[in-house]
Amino acid sequence: MELALVVAVIVIALAFDYTNGFHDAANAIATSVSTRALTPRVALLMAAVMNFLGAFLGTEVADTVGKGIITTPSGQHGLVIVLSALIGAITWNLITWYFGLPSSSSHALIGGLVGAGLASTSVVLWSGIVDKVVIPMVLSPAIGFLGAFALMTAILWIFRRSNPGKTTRGFRLAQSLSAAAMALGHGLQDAQKTMGVIFLALLSTGHVQPGQGIPVWVKISAATAISLGTYSGGWRIMRTLGRRIIHLDPARGFASEAVAATVLYVMAIGLHAPVSTTHTITSAVMGAGATKRLSAVRWGVAKGIIAAWVLTIPAAGVVAAACYWLAHLILE
Protein backbone atom coordinates (compact mmCIF):
# COMPACT_ATOMS: atom_id res chain seq x y z
CA MET A 1 0.00 0.00 0.00
CA GLU A 2 2.80 2.40 0.90
CA LEU A 3 4.62 1.80 -2.40
CA ALA A 4 1.39 2.40 -4.33
CA LEU A 5 0.96 5.70 -2.46
CA VAL A 6 4.55 6.74 -3.27
CA VAL A 7 3.89 6.09 -6.96
CA ALA A 8 0.56 7.98 -6.75
CA VAL A 9 2.24 11.00 -5.13
CA ILE A 10 4.96 11.08 -7.80
CA VAL A 11 2.41 10.80 -10.63
CA ILE A 12 0.18 13.51 -9.16
CA ALA A 13 3.20 15.74 -8.45
CA LEU A 14 4.19 15.48 -12.10
CA ALA A 15 0.57 16.19 -13.09
CA PHE A 16 0.78 19.35 -10.95
CA ASP A 17 4.03 20.21 -12.70
CA TYR A 18 2.29 19.79 -16.06
CA THR A 19 -0.61 22.05 -15.00
CA ASN A 20 1.98 24.53 -13.73
CA GLY A 21 3.52 24.53 -17.20
CA PHE A 22 0.33 25.26 -19.14
CA HIS A 23 -1.00 27.57 -16.41
CA ASP A 24 2.21 29.62 -16.31
CA ALA A 25 3.28 29.40 -19.97
CA ALA A 26 1.90 32.91 -20.36
CA ASN A 27 4.41 34.21 -17.82
CA ALA A 28 7.30 33.78 -20.20
CA ILE A 29 5.77 34.49 -23.58
CA ALA A 30 2.53 36.51 -23.38
CA THR A 31 4.25 39.86 -23.76
CA SER A 32 6.42 38.63 -26.64
CA VAL A 33 3.42 37.19 -28.47
CA SER A 34 1.21 40.24 -27.86
CA THR A 35 3.88 42.58 -29.30
CA ARG A 36 4.47 40.16 -32.22
CA ALA A 37 8.11 39.74 -31.32
CA LEU A 38 7.52 35.98 -31.54
CA THR A 39 4.81 33.80 -33.08
CA PRO A 40 2.81 31.80 -30.52
CA ARG A 41 4.14 28.37 -31.54
CA VAL A 42 7.77 29.49 -31.73
CA ALA A 43 7.39 31.24 -28.37
CA LEU A 44 5.92 28.12 -26.76
CA LEU A 45 8.69 25.89 -28.11
CA MET A 46 11.35 28.31 -26.90
CA ALA A 47 9.68 28.55 -23.48
CA ALA A 48 9.45 24.76 -23.18
CA VAL A 49 13.15 24.30 -23.96
CA MET A 50 14.24 27.06 -21.58
CA ASN A 51 11.93 25.73 -18.84
CA PHE A 52 13.65 22.35 -19.16
CA LEU A 53 17.14 23.87 -18.95
CA GLY A 54 16.19 26.15 -16.07
CA ALA A 55 15.15 23.17 -13.96
CA PHE A 56 18.80 22.09 -13.76
CA LEU A 57 20.26 25.43 -12.63
CA GLY A 58 20.01 24.66 -8.91
CA THR A 59 18.08 22.99 -6.09
CA GLU A 60 17.78 25.86 -3.59
CA VAL A 61 14.03 26.36 -4.11
CA ALA A 62 13.44 22.58 -4.05
CA ASP A 63 15.22 22.37 -0.69
CA THR A 64 13.00 25.13 0.72
CA VAL A 65 9.78 23.42 -0.45
CA GLY A 66 10.94 19.94 0.58
CA LYS A 67 12.30 20.86 4.00
CA GLY A 68 11.26 24.39 4.95
CA ILE A 69 7.43 24.46 4.84
CA ILE A 70 6.19 21.49 6.89
CA THR A 71 7.70 18.51 8.66
CA THR A 72 5.73 15.40 7.69
CA PRO A 73 5.53 12.21 9.75
CA SER A 74 7.12 9.12 8.26
CA GLY A 75 5.34 6.41 6.32
CA GLN A 76 1.86 6.32 4.85
CA HIS A 77 0.57 9.22 6.95
CA GLY A 78 3.18 11.56 5.48
CA LEU A 79 2.30 10.45 1.96
CA VAL A 80 -1.38 11.21 2.51
CA ILE A 81 -0.45 14.75 3.62
CA VAL A 82 1.67 15.36 0.50
CA LEU A 83 -1.00 13.83 -1.75
CA SER A 84 -3.68 16.10 -0.26
CA ALA A 85 -1.47 19.17 -0.72
CA LEU A 86 -1.00 18.36 -4.40
CA ILE A 87 -4.71 17.84 -5.02
CA GLY A 88 -5.46 21.18 -3.38
CA ALA A 89 -2.89 22.95 -5.55
CA ILE A 90 -4.04 21.30 -8.79
CA THR A 91 -7.69 22.14 -8.03
CA TRP A 92 -6.91 25.83 -7.57
CA ASN A 93 -4.72 25.84 -10.69
CA LEU A 94 -7.58 24.47 -12.78
CA ILE A 95 -10.13 26.91 -11.33
CA THR A 96 -7.99 29.96 -12.03
CA TRP A 97 -6.98 28.63 -15.47
CA TYR A 98 -10.67 28.19 -16.38
CA PHE A 99 -11.41 31.82 -15.48
CA GLY A 100 -8.20 33.07 -17.15
CA LEU A 101 -6.70 34.47 -13.94
CA PRO A 102 -2.89 34.42 -13.69
CA SER A 103 -2.70 33.20 -10.09
CA SER A 104 0.36 31.58 -8.55
CA SER A 105 0.96 27.84 -8.91
CA SER A 106 3.78 28.25 -6.39
CA HIS A 107 1.55 29.68 -3.70
CA ALA A 108 -1.17 27.14 -4.52
CA LEU A 109 1.33 24.40 -3.73
CA ILE A 110 2.52 26.11 -0.55
CA GLY A 111 -1.09 26.72 0.51
CA GLY A 112 -1.82 23.05 -0.12
CA LEU A 113 1.13 21.98 2.05
CA VAL A 114 0.13 24.32 4.88
CA GLY A 115 -3.57 23.32 4.71
CA ALA A 116 -2.83 19.59 4.71
CA GLY A 117 -0.22 20.10 7.42
CA LEU A 118 -2.64 21.95 9.72
CA ALA A 119 -5.41 19.40 9.12
CA SER A 120 -3.05 16.56 10.01
CA THR A 121 -1.52 18.38 13.00
CA SER A 122 1.91 18.13 11.34
CA VAL A 123 4.57 20.66 12.27
CA VAL A 124 4.15 23.75 10.10
CA LEU A 125 7.41 25.70 10.01
CA TRP A 126 5.96 29.19 10.36
CA SER A 127 9.30 30.98 10.63
CA GLY A 128 10.38 29.43 7.33
CA ILE A 129 7.06 30.37 5.72
CA VAL A 130 7.42 34.00 6.84
CA ASP A 131 11.06 34.28 5.72
CA LYS A 132 10.90 32.26 2.50
CA VAL A 133 7.28 32.72 1.38
CA VAL A 134 5.43 35.70 2.88
CA ILE A 135 8.19 38.34 2.71
CA PRO A 136 9.29 37.37 -0.85
CA MET A 137 5.60 37.17 -1.86
CA VAL A 138 5.21 40.85 -0.94
CA LEU A 139 8.61 42.01 -2.16
CA SER A 140 8.76 40.36 -5.58
CA PRO A 141 5.66 42.07 -7.09
CA ALA A 142 6.71 45.41 -5.58
CA ILE A 143 10.21 45.11 -7.02
CA GLY A 144 8.75 43.95 -10.34
CA PHE A 145 6.45 46.98 -10.58
CA LEU A 146 8.99 49.59 -9.51
CA GLY A 147 11.86 47.99 -11.43
CA ALA A 148 9.92 47.83 -14.70
CA PHE A 149 8.67 51.39 -14.22
CA ALA A 150 12.24 52.60 -13.65
CA LEU A 151 13.73 50.63 -16.55
CA MET A 152 11.01 51.76 -18.96
CA THR A 153 11.46 55.37 -17.87
CA ALA A 154 15.19 55.04 -18.60
CA ILE A 155 14.46 53.47 -22.02
CA LEU A 156 12.10 56.33 -22.92
CA TRP A 157 14.76 58.90 -22.01
CA ILE A 158 17.67 57.09 -23.75
CA PHE A 159 15.75 56.51 -27.00
CA ARG A 160 13.78 59.76 -26.98
CA ARG A 161 15.44 60.99 -30.22
CA SER A 162 15.73 57.62 -31.97
CA ASN A 163 13.81 56.59 -35.06
CA PRO A 164 10.57 54.95 -33.77
CA GLY A 165 10.54 52.22 -36.44
CA LYS A 166 14.14 51.17 -35.85
CA THR A 167 13.67 51.29 -32.08
CA THR A 168 10.58 49.07 -32.27
CA ARG A 169 12.38 46.51 -34.46
CA GLY A 170 15.34 46.52 -32.09
CA PHE A 171 13.19 45.88 -29.04
CA ARG A 172 11.32 43.09 -30.84
CA LEU A 173 14.68 41.36 -31.25
CA ALA A 174 15.63 42.12 -27.64
CA GLN A 175 12.34 40.62 -26.52
CA SER A 176 13.37 37.24 -27.91
CA LEU A 177 16.25 37.29 -25.42
CA SER A 178 14.22 38.64 -22.49
CA ALA A 179 11.47 36.05 -23.09
CA ALA A 180 14.09 33.28 -23.10
CA ALA A 181 15.52 34.64 -19.83
CA MET A 182 12.03 34.72 -18.34
CA ALA A 183 11.36 31.10 -19.38
CA LEU A 184 14.71 30.02 -17.93
CA GLY A 185 13.80 31.72 -14.63
CA HIS A 186 10.40 30.03 -14.66
CA GLY A 187 12.07 26.62 -14.98
CA LEU A 188 14.53 27.53 -12.23
CA GLN A 189 11.70 28.48 -9.88
CA ASP A 190 8.71 26.29 -10.68
CA ALA A 191 10.18 22.93 -11.72
CA GLN A 192 12.12 22.92 -8.46
CA LYS A 193 8.91 23.16 -6.45
CA THR A 194 7.75 19.83 -7.84
CA MET A 195 11.17 18.35 -7.16
CA GLY A 196 10.82 19.49 -3.55
CA VAL A 197 7.40 17.82 -3.13
CA ILE A 198 8.61 14.51 -4.60
CA PHE A 199 11.68 14.71 -2.36
CA LEU A 200 9.39 15.30 0.63
CA ALA A 201 7.41 12.13 -0.23
CA LEU A 202 10.59 10.07 -0.70
CA LEU A 203 12.00 11.44 2.55
CA SER A 204 8.90 10.52 4.55
CA THR A 205 9.13 6.89 3.38
CA GLY A 206 12.89 6.48 3.77
CA HIS A 207 13.61 6.22 0.03
CA VAL A 208 16.09 9.08 0.46
CA GLN A 209 17.94 10.16 3.57
CA PRO A 210 17.90 13.71 5.04
CA GLY A 211 21.48 14.44 3.95
CA GLN A 212 21.02 13.27 0.38
CA GLY A 213 20.56 15.53 -2.59
CA ILE A 214 17.63 15.35 -4.99
CA PRO A 215 17.94 12.27 -7.25
CA VAL A 216 18.71 12.91 -10.92
CA TRP A 217 15.58 11.04 -12.07
CA VAL A 218 13.44 13.45 -10.02
CA LYS A 219 15.08 16.45 -11.71
CA ILE A 220 14.61 15.01 -15.21
CA SER A 221 10.97 14.03 -14.53
CA ALA A 222 10.04 17.46 -13.16
CA ALA A 223 11.85 19.29 -15.97
CA THR A 224 10.11 17.17 -18.61
CA ALA A 225 6.63 17.57 -17.11
CA ILE A 226 6.79 21.36 -16.85
CA SER A 227 8.21 21.63 -20.39
CA LEU A 228 5.42 19.51 -21.87
CA GLY A 229 2.84 21.56 -19.99
CA THR A 230 4.38 24.78 -21.24
CA TYR A 231 4.35 23.61 -24.85
CA SER A 232 0.64 22.73 -24.57
CA GLY A 233 0.06 26.44 -23.89
CA GLY A 234 -2.16 28.47 -21.61
CA TRP A 235 -4.07 30.64 -24.04
CA ARG A 236 -6.73 31.90 -21.61
CA ILE A 237 -4.14 33.37 -19.25
CA MET A 238 -1.99 34.56 -22.15
CA ARG A 239 -4.81 36.80 -23.32
CA THR A 240 -5.18 38.33 -19.84
CA LEU A 241 -1.48 38.95 -19.33
CA GLY A 242 -0.67 40.01 -22.87
CA ARG A 243 -3.62 42.25 -23.74
CA ARG A 244 -6.26 42.71 -21.07
CA ILE A 245 -4.03 44.45 -18.50
CA ILE A 246 -2.51 46.81 -21.08
CA HIS A 247 -1.63 46.75 -24.78
CA LEU A 248 2.15 46.49 -24.68
CA ASP A 249 4.68 47.68 -27.23
CA PRO A 250 8.02 45.84 -27.67
CA ALA A 251 9.98 48.22 -25.43
CA ARG A 252 7.56 47.78 -22.54
CA GLY A 253 7.44 44.04 -23.14
CA PHE A 254 11.23 43.89 -22.95
CA ALA A 255 11.33 45.99 -19.76
CA SER A 256 8.71 43.77 -18.11
CA GLU A 257 10.47 40.50 -18.96
CA ALA A 258 13.99 41.70 -18.18
CA VAL A 259 13.03 42.92 -14.70
CA ALA A 260 10.85 39.90 -13.89
CA ALA A 261 13.56 37.44 -14.96
CA THR A 262 16.12 39.25 -12.79
CA VAL A 263 13.83 39.05 -9.75
CA LEU A 264 13.32 35.30 -10.30
CA TYR A 265 17.06 34.59 -10.44
CA VAL A 266 17.89 36.70 -7.39
CA MET A 267 15.10 35.19 -5.30
CA ALA A 268 15.95 31.60 -6.28
CA ILE A 269 19.74 31.61 -6.20
CA GLY A 270 20.35 34.39 -3.69
CA LEU A 271 17.50 33.97 -1.19
CA HIS A 272 16.35 30.37 -1.92
CA ALA A 273 12.80 31.73 -1.97
CA PRO A 274 9.97 30.08 -4.00
CA VAL A 275 8.43 33.25 -5.43
CA SER A 276 5.63 33.43 -7.94
CA THR A 277 6.62 33.95 -11.57
CA THR A 278 3.01 35.00 -12.17
CA HIS A 279 2.99 37.74 -9.55
CA THR A 280 6.37 39.03 -10.68
CA ILE A 281 5.70 39.32 -14.41
CA THR A 282 2.17 40.66 -13.94
CA SER A 283 3.42 43.41 -11.64
CA ALA A 284 6.23 44.20 -14.06
CA VAL A 285 3.72 44.52 -16.91
CA MET A 286 1.71 46.97 -14.79
CA GLY A 287 4.85 48.94 -13.93
CA ALA A 288 6.02 49.21 -17.54
CA GLY A 289 2.48 50.08 -18.66
CA ALA A 290 2.13 52.80 -16.05
CA THR A 291 4.86 54.81 -17.79
CA LYS A 292 2.31 55.65 -20.54
CA ARG A 293 -0.08 57.00 -17.96
CA LEU A 294 -1.66 55.41 -14.92
CA SER A 295 -5.03 55.21 -16.64
CA ALA A 296 -3.49 53.09 -19.43
CA VAL A 297 -3.40 50.12 -17.05
CA ARG A 298 -6.79 48.44 -16.78
CA TRP A 299 -6.95 48.48 -13.01
CA GLY A 300 -10.30 46.66 -12.97
CA VAL A 301 -8.64 43.59 -14.50
CA ALA A 302 -5.69 44.09 -12.15
CA LYS A 303 -8.03 44.04 -9.12
CA GLY A 304 -9.39 40.64 -10.19
CA ILE A 305 -5.86 39.30 -10.50
CA ILE A 306 -4.84 40.66 -7.10
CA ALA A 307 -7.96 39.11 -5.53
CA ALA A 308 -6.89 35.73 -6.96
CA TRP A 309 -3.41 36.27 -5.50
CA VAL A 310 -4.82 36.94 -2.02
CA LEU A 311 -7.13 33.93 -2.17
CA THR A 312 -4.62 31.44 -3.55
CA ILE A 313 -2.90 30.21 -0.37
CA PRO A 314 -6.07 29.95 1.81
CA ALA A 315 -8.20 28.49 -1.02
CA ALA A 316 -5.66 25.80 -1.92
CA GLY A 317 -5.18 25.16 1.81
CA VAL A 318 -8.91 24.60 2.40
CA VAL A 319 -9.15 22.15 -0.52
CA ALA A 320 -6.02 20.32 0.68
CA ALA A 321 -7.39 20.08 4.24
CA ALA A 322 -10.69 18.64 2.95
CA CYS A 323 -8.75 16.15 0.79
CA TYR A 324 -6.66 15.12 3.79
CA TRP A 325 -9.69 14.45 5.98
CA LEU A 326 -11.31 12.40 3.20
CA ALA A 327 -8.11 10.47 2.41
CA HIS A 328 -7.48 9.92 6.12
CA LEU A 329 -10.86 8.21 6.44
CA ILE A 330 -10.33 6.04 3.37
CA LEU A 331 -6.64 5.15 3.49
CA GLU A 332 -5.64 5.20 7.16
Rank of each mutant, 00 (worst) to 15 (best):
V310R: 14
A273H: 14
V65K: 00
L311K: 05
V6N: 06
S105H: 12
I305R: 05
T230N: 08
S34F: 05
L14D: 05
V114L: 12
G242F: 06
G88N: 00
A37Y: 11
G66K: 00
P136M: 13
L79S: 08
P274L: 06
L109K: 13
H186I: 06
V61Q: 03
L248T: 11
L14P: 02
G54D: 08
T19A: 12
L101V: 03
I305M: 02
G75R: 01
A181N: 09
R236K: 14
H77N: 10
V218N: 03
A307H: 04
A222R: 09
A48H: 05
G185W: 12
A25M: 07
A148K: 00
R244L: 15
G187D: 05
K219Y: 04
G128C: 07
L109R: 14
S204L: 12
M195E: 14
M152G: 03
G112R: 13
R243G: 08
P40Y: 04
M195L: 10
A273E: 13
I10F: 09
R298C: 04
Q189H: 10
S127C: 01
G68T: 12
A308W: 04
V33T: 10
I110Y: 06
T280H: 02
D63Q: 15
L173K: 14
T312H: 02
Y265F: 15
V138M: 15
T277K: 10
I220P: 05
T153P: 06
L177P: 00
G233Y: 14
W235I: 12
G21P: 04
G253T: 03
F171P: 11
S104E: 06
L264R: 02
G253E: 08
R169V: 03
A148T: 00
G287N: 10
F99V: 11
I158M: 15
A28I: 03
H186E: 13
T39E: 13
V318L: 15
M182Q: 15
L177I: 14
V297T: 02
T240K: 00
T31M: 02
I198V: 13
I281L: 08
G206F: 07
S105W: 10
H23F: 00
T59D: 08
T262N: 04
S103R: 01
M152P: 09
E60W: 12
L294N: 09
I155E: 02
S276M: 00
A251H: 11
L53I: 14
Q209V: 11
L44M: 10
A154W: 12
L113D: 11
I10N: 12
V114R: 07
A15V: 14
T168I: 04
R298T: 05
G75S: 06
R41C: 00
I87C: 06
A320T: 09
I87Q: 00
A108R: 08
S227P: 11
K303D: 09
G185H: 11
T72E: 01
T224S: 12
H186F: 01
G304H: 14
F159K: 10
